[in-house]
Design a protein around this nucleic acid. Structure first.
Length: 813
DNA sequence: ACCGCCGGGTGCC
DNA sequence: ACCGCCGGGTGCC
């Protein structure tokens, strides 16, 4: 399994890399309709492979669908099958039936599939020439929590999922990017245009298809077919908005069309050449030619083409509708009669005959989807070309708009979008489906072959995705270059920065607000971390209080609660440090601005100020009367209330396990048990007593008499108590119950027994809770040690800032 | 022989 | 399917 972060990383990487280096052109073919029935939403991203199973496809003799060695097959439930309601049909990429899964296995699979416990993939590795049955390797994928249910369910019916095997059922791509078709000597527009023209007219194979003998073979799915895979006549124009104009994509689009024409010398008689002089008026004439006069090129025989189709349908968001209209109004020459119809508003002409006699019909996504399923004239017309402006709008395949767009019949399809992928790889599917890029227009195949591998971090999958996108997309940016020269020349751009000074009054208010906010957050973060650390040791260490600061609290409320939390934290034995003496806080008090100091330290600060005393940390005004302190009684009371009923914790268990084992090995060994939470030491007393360990506490809470009684087996030590010079060489095994911020503190502690006078080997055991702040603290300790080794002597200010960095890295910010 | 055995017909779901 | 299964033909060795 990959961690969440890792997966996310890949998702993002793909987004970035997909469009890198995209000014190269490529020639593939296009496709026409493939409307396969299987387009259930794959319950995507968290899928893991449960296991695999060798199954049997039966009834081959009754169907025409054939498969190649290694070919992926689809498994489709047929609940309506008259012979068996559990039937599972097996089909190849084009949806041709190959056979059925044999009955008993189908019964087991039906349950799993119908209850959405797993998705099942099939690949036929051998036996493809069989006449009656063939083996199929079935892979079960799904969410982790369903894994056992699926394995059990299959096992109950005698099918054992092989869970051990490797999961590389993806043979990695031998696929090279399709050959570039572009002519490097062309200007970038020409390049774009020749690309567009090529996309509408060329006959090369789509990505991942190649000719093998008489057959066309898909290298990713291993499917082959006698018929040439349908071409994708169109693609995605994803040029950066700033590249050509700031007016709108439609301008750019028409722009591109202009160049397409000029570069291909396809001007109508009577049209002037536009190679040199080029303005929008001419451009639109060209647009008219390319987009309106239908048969742009007829050198390629295409049986699917409906020669009567002449209309281009443009779908755009309402907000840009007027841009398109403006473009047409401004730039269409009077001598060109171009029928442009705006299909919008309640009075719109819904006649199919009328609409299909237009040159251009413009409408919005909303109108289209409102019409869809309601005798929509738009869906009854055979369009010459459909253009989706701001095509990323339809990235959600479940949206009505998207379904409406997919239902359009067209010979050529274009998507204009500056951001074809907005959030993740998933966004791309709708675009491919709209373009009818086989076999990915069927969701299932897209998911199996591209999306899942990419999301799970498969490099080959990512590469395939890149190849795919590259083939159908044109994307350049202002900084793109062609043959070492910038793609476009823009007027020079200068960015000036003018600095503005705040007035003194403004500055003071600003600083106040900033400190207030920053310190509140810092303190709160520290408190949260502190609580997590307590959790790692024992749940009862936490004071029982409502645990959130509330999102809607006012600053004053926030402060109140913050102070309350600090009180609780300090009351349970904190290692907070005082910013005045830089030592552990003694006699802690909390200021109104929620900072903690030793009472004598802050008292001294206040007394040295003549007028207004300010907090050393945030410079808020502080008054002696507002200091909140912790009477000794309160701390003890806290002790008493939270220990209603003793219970154990994983860390307690870990310690006891070690102690019991070591005592068996050598009963003379003496232990030092160290924690920074004195209450944790108290909690430990119970099990120690229970197992007959004699112990003393060295944190001052234990009376002097008991300390001097006969030599105990265990010494319980508070990390910061005991002071310097304590000699504990009697102990030879140290248990550090929880990590300290500062590795040096731990070192000091260990040195109390690892010093002159020690006769035994010293063993130190540190307990670190897996997958918790404690692990992160250890990392930070290590970094600190590295730092210390590299450069000696860090100042106090360094210490302060690094503390904040510690917090950041702890929270993985 | 109300069996066993043989060999031809047959075959998905 | 170079199987399994079914049902008709057959019947000591």
């Amino acid at each position: 399994m990959f961690s969440h972060r890792w997966r996310f990383g890949w998702d993002r990487v793909s987004e970035v890399d997909l469009f890198a280096d995209r000014h190269e052109t490529s020639a593939e073919t296009l496709s026409q309709a493939i409307r396969a029935a299987m387009s259930e939403e794959p319950d995507s991203d968290g899928s893991v492979l449960f296991g695999q199973l060798q199954g049997t496809v039966v009834g081959l003799r009754y169907y025409t669908g054939v498969v190649n060695q290694g070919e992926m097959v689809g498994l489709v439930r047929q609940p309506q099958n008259p012979y068996d309601r559990n039937a599972v049909m097996v089909a190849n990429i084009y949806g041709n039936q190959v056979g059925h899964i044999k009955r008993e296995l189908a019964a087991a699979m039906a349950y799993v599939m119908d209850n959405n416990l797993a998705k099942v993939d099939g690949v036929v590795h051998w036996g493809t020439k069989n006449k009656f049955t063939m083996p199929v390797m079935l892979s079960f994928w799904g969410r982790e929590e369903n894994k056992n249910a699926v394995i059990e369910c299959m096992a109950r019916r005698g099918y054992k999922l092989n869970t051990a095997g490797s999961l590389n059922q993806h043979k990695d791509g031998e696929k090279e990017a399709a050959e570039s078709v572009g002519t490097p000597l062309l200007l970038h527009q020409k390049q774009a245009l020749s690309w567009m023209c090529a996309r509408e007219n060329q006959s090369a194979l789509p990505p991942f298809w190649e000719k093998r003998g008489e057959l066309y073979y898909n290298t990713l799915t291993c499917f082959s077919t006698k018929d040439i895979p349908e071409r994708v006549r169109g693609g995605i124009l994803a040029d950066d908005m700033g590249l050509v104009s700031d007016i709108h994509t439609c301008t750019y689009f028409t722009h591109i069309c202009l160049h397409t024409l000029s570069s291909n010398c396809m001007l109508l008689p009577g049209f002037k050449s536009v190679k040199e002089k080029f303005d929008y008026a001419v451009m639109l004439e060209i647009f008219v030619y390319l987009f309106v006069c239908a048969d742009v090129e007829s050198s390629i025989p295409d049986t699917v083409d409906d020669p009567s189709a002449r209309t281009t349908l443009i779908i755009c968001p309402l907000s840009v509708l007027s841009n398109w209209l403006d473009q047409f109004e401004q730039h269409v020459c009077a001598n060109v009669k171009l029928n442009v119809y705006l299909y919008y508003g309640s009075e719109r002409n819904r006649s199919k005959k009328f609409l299909s006699s237009q040159d251009v019909v413009i409408t919005t996504y909303n109108v289209l989807s409102a019409d869809f399923g309601n005798k929509s004239p738009l869906h009854g017309i055979n369009w010459l070309r459909v253009v989706l402006d701001e095509g990323h709008i339809i990235r959600n395949p479940n949206a009505q708009m998207s379904k409406a767009v997919l239902g359009l019949k067209a010979q050529r399809r274009w998507i204009l979008s500056g951001t074809p992928i907005q959030n993740s790889v998933k966004d791309l599917w709708m675009l491919l489906a709209f373009l009818r890029l086989k076999p990915f227009d069927v969701r299932e195949w897209w998911y199996r072959v591209i999306q899942r591998p990419v999301i799970q971090g498969d490099r080959a999958g990512l590469q395939n995705l890149q190849t795919l996108v590259k083939c159908i997309t044109l994307r350049r940016t202002k900084s793109s270059e062609v043959n070492g020269r910038p793609l476009v020349s823009l007027p020079e751009k200068t960015v000036c920065v003018e600095q503005v000074e705040l007035s003194q009054a403004e500055r003071e208010e600003y600083e106040l607000a900033r400190n207030e906010g920053r310190n509140t957050i810092r303190r709160y973060v520290l408190v949260c971390l502190y609580m997590l650390r307590q959790h790692c040791c024992h749940p009862d260490l936490l004071a029982k209080i409502s645990s959130d600061l509330g999102a809607t609290a006012t600053p004053a409320e926030l402060r109140e609660r913050l102070i309350e939390k600090l009180r609780l934290v300090l009351a349970s034995g904190s290692d907070e440090e005082c910013s005045v003496c830089l030592d552990s806080v003694r006699l802690p008090v909390i200021t109104h601005c929620a900072h903690v100091y030793c009472r004598p330290c802050i008292a001294q600060v206040i007394s040295t100020e003549q007028n207004v005393a300010r907090c050393p940390l945030c410079r808020s005004e502080i008054k002696t009367s507002e200091l909140v302190e912790f009477p000794q009684e309160e701390m003890e009371e806290e002790n008493g209330t939270s220990s209603e009923k003793w219970r154990t914790s994983s860390k307690v268990q870990a310690l006891m396990g070690n102690l019991l084992r070591l005592r068996c090995e050598d009963s003379s060994i003496k232990f030092l048990v160290v924690s920074q939470f004195t209450r944790f030491l108290t909690i430990l007393e119970a099990p120690l007593r229970e197992h007959g360990f004699s112990f003393v506490r060295l944190d001052g809470t234990m009376s002097q008499k008991r300390r001097t009684q006969d030599s105990p087996a265990i010494m319980l030590l508070s990390l910061k108590a005991g002071g310097v010079g304590l000699n504990l060489t009697a102990a030879s095994h140290v248990f550090l119950m929880d990590p300290a911020w500062n590795p040096a503190t731990e070192e000091q502690c260990i040195d109390r027994c690892h010093r002159l006078g020690q006769t035994r080997k010293v063993v130190v055991t540190k307990f670190i809770v897996k997958n918790s702040v404690e692990e992160n603290m250890v990392k930070i300790q290590r970094q600190k040690q590295d730092l210390v080794e590299k450069a000696f002597g860090s100042t106090n200010t360094d210490r302060k800032t690094s503390r904040i960095d510690d917090i950041k890295s702890l929270m993985e910010l």
